[in-house]
Amino acid sequence: MTIRNDRPVRIGLQLEPQHADYDAIRRAAAEAEDLGVDILFNWDHFYPLSGDPEGKHFECWTMLGAWAEATSRVEIGALVTCNSYRNPELLADMARTVDHISGGRLILGIGAGWFEKDYAEYGYEFGTAGSRIADLGEALPRIERRFSKLNPAPTRKIPVLIGGGGERKTLRLVAQHADIWHGFGDVEVAARKIEVLDRHCADVGRDPAEIERSVEVSGSPSDSGDQLADLGITLFTMTASGPDYEFGELREWLAWRDSRNGRR
């Protein structure tokens, strides 16, 4: 069944900041913006997730500050910030600052965290999946309250993206706090997660149309693009990793986006 959705299709690109010199990351960000990407993401880890586990790597939020100055059009953000690594009030202030530096282009992507090596090496308590999600649930209202106290205030209502697919807890937090939900999986999985999210929205009194739906994609858009879009998903995010950032598939998705939006 096709879901009516008035949002245009958007393409995101996650530049994984691993195994590359920063000059290469900066060039990739500039090229992606020139190609027409809508949102440019990095990630919030301290070590590579693939390849040499001790390979080159760079920190998330200092990079976002640099991207805020180095880009002019794309929205920017982390896919996603690990809630465990920063005090919620500090994170809100960091986000507000990057929001101003970028001229109102920041998306605050956030999640509960999962990569145990980051926690062990940097001295954070890993806890359990349940405790990390509970911590995220406590942090989100604190971030919202801090936004309201900052001077100067954010340039806009900073969009909050929550990543994750836990059907009982994470998707309920999405219904309560998120402007964007980011998930993973094929068409069948996405359809089930959206159904669960819509039920949580009904339970908390939220219009599900207020939440943009995002999914990670790869391969050709002809494989699943239209099917995912017909579920009401409008943000399609690809990944590219260092040391060489290849954009062949990205160009296909950008062309598909333009064709899809042209039929609106």
Rank of each mutant, 00 (worst) to 15 (best):
residue 203 D to I: 12
residue 38 D to S: 03
residue 213 R to T: 05
residue 28 A to P: 00
residue 167 E to K: 12
residue 31 E to T: 10
residue 71 T to D: 02
residue 5 N to V: 12
residue 202 A to C: 09
residue 72 S to E: 15
residue 64 L to S: 00
residue 178 A to H: 03
residue 80 V to A: 04
residue 4 R to K: 15
residue 120 A to Y: 14
residue 26 R to D: 07
residue 169 K to I: 04
residue 236 F to K: 02
residue 64 L to C: 04
residue 203 D to W: 10
residue 25 I to R: 00
residue 131 S to K: 12
residue 158 I to A: 01
residue 155 T to H: 05
residue 257 R to Y: 06
residue 217 V to C: 05
residue 138 E to C: 15
residue 210 E to Y: 10
residue 70 A to Y: 07
residue 15 L to E: 00
residue 169 K to R: 13
residue 193 K to Q: 14
residue 141 P to S: 03
residue 217 V to T: 04
residue 147 F to K: 00
residue 40 L to P: 02
residue 84 S to I: 08
residue 164 G to S: 04
residue 16 E to D: 07
residue 70 A to K: 09
residue 18 Q to S: 06
residue 139 A to N: 07
residue 207 D to L: 06
residue 64 L to F: 00
residue 93 D to R: 15
residue 150 L to W: 15
residue 80 V to Y: 03
residue 250 L to V: 02
residue 226 D to M: 15
residue 188 E to L: 14
residue 45 H to G: 02
residue 229 A to Q: 10
residue 21 D to L: 06
residue 227 Q to T: 11
residue 63 M to Q: 04
residue 199 R to Y: 13
residue 207 D to W: 05
residue 149 K to R: 13
residue 122 Y to M: 10
residue 9 V to G: 03
residue 233 I to K: 02
residue 170 T to M: 08
residue 70 A to W: 08
residue 188 E to C: 11
residue 25 I to V: 05
residue 142 R to N: 10
residue 250 L to G: 00
residue 126 F to I: 08
residue 112 A to V: 05
residue 97 T to D: 10
residue 251 R to Y: 10
residue 209 A to F: 09
residue 141 P to R: 06
residue 195 E to R: 15
residue 174 V to E: 01
residue 252 E to N: 12
residue 237 T to H: 01
residue 65 G to C: 05
residue 248 G to H: 12
residue 103 G to C: 09
residue 50 S to Q: 13
residue 36 G to F: 06
residue 45 H to T: 02
residue 79 L to G: 03
residue 229 A to V: 10
residue 192 R to A: 14
residue 155 T to D: 08
residue 262 G to Y: 08
residue 70 A to D: 10
residue 20 A to E: 00
residue 78 A to H: 04
residue 225 G to A: 10
residue 42 N to T: 10
residue 122 Y to Q: 12
residue 214 S to F: 06
residue 183 G to K: 01
residue 229 A to L: 09
residue 138 E to T: 12
residue 84 S to H: 07
residue 208 P to N: 04
residue 78 A to M: 11
residue 121 E to W: 13
residue 83 N to S: 12
residue 187 V to R: 14
residue 249 E to W: 09
residue 142 R to A: 07
residue 257 R to V: 05
residue 78 A to V: 07
residue 230 D to K: 15
residue 110 I to N: 02
residue 162 I to A: 04
residue 130 G to C: 03
residue 185 G to M: 04
residue 219 G to Q: 07
residue 248 G to L: 13
residue 160 V to I: 13
residue 152 P to C: 11
residue 226 D to R: 14
residue 140 L to I: 07
residue 70 A to Q: 14
residue 134 A to Y: 13
residue 154 P to V: 07
residue 59 E to W: 07
residue 90 L to A: 11
residue 18 Q to E: 08
residue 167 E to F: 11
residue 214 S to T: 08
residue 24 A to T: 09
residue 85 Y to K: 06
residue 45 H to V: 01
residue 247 F to H: 09
residue 243 P to L: 01
residue 39 I to Y: 02
residue 156 R to V: 14
residue 205 G to T: 02
residue 16 E to Y: 00
residue 260 R to A: 13
residue 186 D to N: 14
residue 145 R to K: 15
residue 20 A to C: 09
residue 74 V to S: 10
residue 255 A to R: 15
residue 149 K to Y: 14
residue 48 P to M: 06
residue 142 R to P: 09
residue 262 G to K: 06
residue 146 R to M: 13
residue 154 P to N: 08
residue 144 E to G: 11
residue 195 E to Y: 12
residue 76 I to C: 02
residue 163 G to I: 01
residue 161 L to M: 15
residue 35 L to F: 08
residue 21 D to Q: 11
